[in-house]
């Protein structure tokens, strides 16, 4: 127990949520998407959030990113409580402190690869450092595609641009929402290797929501959500172990309904 206390004091986690609760709607028709979730994400770790559909994975990510406001509970980004921040402040936080990777890539269609990578800095009113942008694109192996529009890139390449965009500002945490959901398995592996190397080489704290056991096997730790609650954790996950656990959880959900 004392050692845990020491860790908290010495090393503020990149991201923590305390009693995170999100209720959609009100009255009899209200749905609890998250119920008192407590989680801590240490710096430089790669965590996968898994669970059956409707388990609250996406709501969790939306609350952490400030896209949605939790009903109660706190979100701490590098020790700072960001829960009560207004819309503009949360937007700035998303731009400056969070790197986002989406299932649909979310590239802006009329900006080239390098302009997409430089966009958050541009929105922040900073001049994007050309070198940093080039470096980020080189990291994901797309240095030669800097001038291409998204329409000239394959799905995997588009997602790699999105990763470069998420990494370029060295965010406190990188959030990935089903990053391989729209990709074939070979391309998905490429993308997952990139996420892994960002954690290993840059110490980039990463939280990834996924339903794919293969994707989860690239993480250090898997957190399982069921009906908005933490239903288990698994360290050093393997594809088979994750798949087995998911099947088990599906049964639980099936029995519960």
């Amino acid at each position: 127990m004392p050692s845990v206390v020491c860790m908290v004091v010495d090393d503020t986690p990149a991201l923590a949520v305390e009693g995170l609760t999100k209720r959609h709607g009100s009255g009899a028709g209200a749905v609890d998407a998250l119920v008192g979730v407590d989680l801590t994400f240490a710096r430089g770790t790669f965590t996968a959030i898994m669970g059956p559909s409707g388990s609250g994975k996406s709501t969790f990510l939306a609350c952490v990113a400030g896209l949605e406001r939790p009903t109660s509970g706190r979100v701490l980004l590098e020790g700072t409580d960001v829960t009560g921040w207004d819309e503009t402040r949360r937007t700035r936080m998303r731009r400056d402190r969070i790197g986002f990777v989406f299932q649909d890539f979310s590239l802006i269609p009329y900006l080239t690869a390098q302009e997409n990578v430089a966009l958050p800095a541009k929105l922040a009113g900073r001049r994007a450092e050309k070198q940093a942008v080039q470096l980020a694109l080189a990291r994901v192996g797309l240095a030669s595609r800097a001038e291409h529009l998204p329409s000239a890139l394959s799905g995997g390449q588009q997602q790699r641009v999105a990763i470069a965009r998420a990494l370029v500002a060295q965010p406190a945490v990188m959030l990935a929402d089903e990053p391989t959901g729209a990709l074939d398995s070979a391309t998905a592996r490429e993308v997952l290797r990139l996420l892994r190397s960002a954690v290993d080489e840059l110490g980039q704290t990463t939280v990834m929501v996924t339903h794919d056991p293969l994707a989860a096997s690239y993480a250090d730790k898997v957190v399982f959500l069921v009906d908005g609650r933490v239903a288990g954790k698994m360290a050093a996950p393997s594809v088979d172990a994750v798949a087995a656990q998911l099947a088990h959880l599906d049964q639980l959900v099936g029995a519960g309904r």
Binding site: A65, L67, E87, T88, T91, R92, R94, R95, D96, F100, F102, S106, I108, L119, P120, L123, A124, R165
Partner: peptide, 10 residues
């Protein structure tokens, strides 16, 4: 999409 990436409403 731009809003999610950090463009303010303004």
């Amino acid at each position: 999409r731009l809003w999610r990436l950090g463009a303010t409403a303004r």
